[in-house]
Design a protein around this nucleic acid. Structure first.
Lengths: 128, 128
DNA sequence: CGGTATCCTCATTGATACTG
DNA sequence: CAGTATCAATGAGGATACCG
């Protein structure tokens, strides 16, 4: 029951794209194309579950606001799960949902392309 | 001389991302993550070569300015080739470069994901 | 710890009109 | 046909501070 018809009724994901040709790429980009989404997903893909601050540390450069906002959006899109681990000393853990994990191929091809065609600065990263 | 070391000296593609972890996904997104880039590349992937107006018609919703601007950016990033077909009645054709074509996997996985998880509105597209 | 709230900036996008 | 110029709007993103 998870690969036949994934789209909920309240889901508006498909709406803003349903123009002349539907365009799945544009839609997909609208979902994961936000500035911080790809990295966040990428990290979650590798670490399985992370706390807010761990994520904040992992992503590097992201502000609380953007992390929170991105996570919020990702949750709303059912790509990320938010789990309260502890109430008293507030502790929350973020992980990918099934749907989120399904993005692995996308993120992976993106990463692959980046590594192949953008050239990692492994040998000249210390110049800055 | 086109598949050994693809990165030109003036190329700043790798620069803005060379932070703490390099992050290929973020870099890749910076290249193709612009609003219209994915669709344009997608069309070019399917049509091989298109004129400015054909593209303008294909993309649907894009303005001259954005198309021109996107194409310009794509050219600068060496993803798209601009070929002047005719001088007098100005005619230009756009096509993907090798590098641009290398994005096929990315665009494809993006499209695949979109189609699988965002559900094309084929059966309810006429409600609007 | 895990966020929110506020304010501010500037980049992206768009509409419209004009041109070689 | 294939753009460019200009102006304006929008909103994404960032800095900082505060909260339960």
């Amino acid at each position: 029951m998870s690969d036949t018809t994934e789209v909920p009724e309240d889901e508006c994901l498909a709406v803003w794209c349903a123009g002349d040709d539907w365009c799945a790429v544009t839609c997909a980009m609208d979902v994961i194309g936000k500035k911080w989404h790809p990295v966040i997903i990428h990290r979650l893909l590798r670490c399985d579950e992370l706390r807010f601050n761990e994520l904040s540390d992992e992503v590097d450069g992201i502000t609380n606001k953007m992390l929170s906002q991105s996570l919020d959006d990702l949750e709303e899109k059912e790509l990320v799960d938010r789990t309260i681990v502890s109430e008293k000393p507030v502790a929350v853990e973020y992980s990918l949902t099934e749907r989120g994990r399904s993005l692995e191929r996308v993120i992976d091809s993106l990463e692959q392309w980046g590594k192949t065609h953008l050239q990692p600065p492994e040998s000249e990263v210390e110049s800055a």
